[in-house]
Design a protein around this nucleic acid. Structure first.
Lengths: 207, 207
DNA sequence: GACAATACCAAGCAAGCGCTTGGTTTGTAA
DNA sequence: TTACAAACCAAGCGCTTGCTTGGTATTGTC
């Protein structure tokens, strides 16, 4: 299934908003602004202006500002969980599955959903405790994908460190790319970057 | 030189504030609050209350709230650069130097200066562009320490990936530990965590 | 073409924000 | 004891914030 097909089916199931609709457009702009200026520094007036309405009109679509932040996070996780699952299923060996996961996460961080992913990392504390708990549940689903694959590699002896530690290190390392990786300037492509990550873990690049 | 000796000499040179003095205590509380609630959500009234003065009195010590954030970051970098330099010089082989750097960075992130280090990572955007430039200059000094060591290992063939990529991945991975590593509960010590990081990079633990 | 429901606007409220002001206390040294 | 600066307080100003309110277009449905 292509990336776009996955997105379409999630929209059909009402799990993520159509980016061409009013709600979807707002969430996209919100992700951009939250990443650019941070959640706190982004005012409801900024958000409204970004989609061309009055600030008060926002509250017809969302009850609070925080609900917007939460929606950005929830929808991002839903989309990326689906993308990862699909990427992983397409690979055969544990090693290739790991590469697929790394590649997929790098893509979600540095591609279309990059702004929303950065928000997920950097604006976590701005969520209320209740919302944090809800979002965490969703995250667990796709963390399990990683741990399964890393566990297999560990059994094979291809990994010297503990799977749960490696996953957490990779979470940090891959998220952090958002602060420095610029594919447009400089020769490192997404596949090249994926190779570098695999090499760092001791897996030589495939031909 | 012990950690404490390094701190004392920096205080003597007026490069960091004495943590027992008024300014030092404020910076320590500021780091705690900034990390706990974020810079924007921390009010000058919070900061003042934390050291037992009125909010207006803060501005006798600092001209603006942002100046407090900047001071937290600057002093943290100064201290940690000194600590890293010292840790690295004590090691002999490139491999041991790398381990010393990893261990030192994990300690600064998860030890005494942990709150300030977390602020450095998560509140970066709250600094004005001018302040960012100033702080970046300081960072470059200790980034060079890492790149030197990683470059040596690369030449030796002990590292499969590019030094600058590895350093950036490690920055993310090690910073991220602040969100999950809890030495007090759970058996993983700081040395154990350091071993795990080295193992992830393909370096087996020494006896 | 009537009628809801949905989407929006214009205006502004109450609270909280960073910071300023004018004046008082405290520490230090001659 | 006096002199003076550093450290602090009490009060509050001007502004921005998230959000509410009462009303008006716009849209889809039969």
């Amino acid at each position: 299934m292509s990336q776009n097909q996955i997105l379409q089916s999630l929209i059909a199931e009402n799990l993520v908003s159509d980016p061409t609709g009013a709600r979807g457009r707002l969430l996209k702009e919100a992700a951009r602004l939250f990443r650019e200026k941070g959640y706190e520094r982004t005012t409801v007036r900024d958000l409204a202006a970004a989609v061309g309405i009055q600030s008060g009109s926002l509250f017809h679509h969302f009850r609070t500002k925080e609900e917007i932040l939460k929606a950005v996070m929830v929808e991002t996780i839903r989309l990326n969980t689906a993308l990862m699952q699909s990427a992983m299923e397409a690979a055969d060996t544990p090693r290739d599955k790991l590469r697929a996961l790394v590649r997929a996460e790098l893509e979600s961080i540095n591609g279309q959903t990059g702004e929303a992913m950065a928000v997920l990392v950097f604006e976590w504390r701005s969520l209320s405790a209740d919302s944090q708990a809800e979002v965490l549940e969703l995250r667990d689903i796709y963390e399990a994908l990683w741990l399964d694959v890393l566990g297999l590699l560990r059994e094979q002896g291809a990994l010297l460190a503990e799977p749960f530690v490696v996953r957490r290190m990779l979470t940090g390392a891959l998220s952090w790319t958002v602060t420095w990786y610029r594919p447009e300037r400089g020769g490192l492509t997404l596949d090249g970057l994926t190779d570098q990550v695999m090499a760092m873990l001791g897996f030589a690049a495939t031909a």
